[in-house]
């Protein structure tokens, strides 16, 4: 039996290599990659925060039973200005990374990034508007952050869409509920400065604090109408709370 000739062999090897490479061939710098975690740290003016604890905020006694928000379209900016996205290397929005951040869970896996220095991070508070309008929560695998089976799944079935951010609790003993959602209220954080964070094998974590005490800035909680918003019908209040959540973020 005659073996295949050299030209054919080279051709085969090339074809095999091209066809069998499963992952996208990202160009990786010399330093390699490392797993990155995003640490969302709730606090009250720098003090530790806990669900159902009572805190003094602007002269009010405030306790939270629920603090949660969805996160979409995360981007890191590297030292050289290049952007790192978490889009699964596809153009399909549904392959993007989504997070559901709750006060009770601080660590979130972003996957592998290149070792190096990172300048800033930005993301949207809420569920990407295309996904929010087009993909129902029963369409995801059960362990996906957007799945109806997520234990903290928060969604309006009577006006289809995710509750982007939810704050619930009591203020001076009176209940409050803020449910922020609808595509109009997706809130980009803008760039949050990371103080030239070095991400490597020893440090694979970016820590973002959010100051719960800022959530009610410029809102008079003694007025009953200011203690509840389901976005629809009370959009100005919802916008204000969304803006306050946005401005509560900082690097820690």
């Amino acid at each position: 039996m005659k073996v295949i000739n050299k030209v054919q062999l080279i051709f085969l090897v090339v074809i095999a290599v091209i066809l069998s490479s499963c992952s996208d061939d990202d160009t990786v710098n010399d330093l390699g990659t490392t797993d990155l975690k995003l640490h969302f740290h709730p606090h009250v003016n720098g003090e530790d925060f806990a669900i159902n604890e009572t805190y003094s905020m602007n002269g009010n006694e405030v306790s939270f039973s629920r603090v949660q928000f969805y996160v979409s379209n995360i981007e890191l900016t590297k030292e050289d200005g290049s952007l790192v996205k978490f889009d699964g290397n596809t153009s399909e929005k549904e392959d993007d990374l989504f997070l559901q951040v709750t006060a009770g869970n601080m660590m979130y896996d972003l996957g592998e990034v290149e070792i190096g220095t990172y300048k800033s991070i930005n993301f949207e508070i809420g569920v990407d508007t295309v996904i929010n309008s087009t993909i129902e929560p029963t369409a995801w695998p059960t362990d996906h952050p957007l799945s109806a089976d997520n234990p903290n799944h928060y969604y309006w079935s009577w006006n289809t869409g995710y509750i982007f951010a939810a704050l619930e609790g009591t203020v001076n003993g009176e209940p409050f509920t803020y449910h922020i959602g609808t595509n109009d209220l997706i809130t980009p954080t803008g760039n949050i400065d990371l103080n030239e964070a070095t991400i490597n094998g020893d440090n694979g974590e970016i820590m973002i604090g959010y100051n719960v005490a800022k959530f009610f800035n410029d809102i008079d909680l003694s007025i009953e109408g200011n203690r509840s918003s389901h976005t629809m019908g009370t959009k100005p209040l919802a916008l204000k709370v969304a803006g306050n959540i946005k401005s509560s973020f900082s690097t820690m």
């Binding site: 309008s133 129902e136 929560p137 029963t138 369409a139 109806a148 969604y155 309006w156 079935s157 009577w158 006006n159 289809t160």
Partner: peptide, 19 residues
Amino acid sequence: LFWDGGANDLESLTFGPLT
């Protein structure tokens, strides 16, 4: 779905009456 069309699909709607 619903009288005001608030639900985009049956899959989203079901959680309304269920809960």
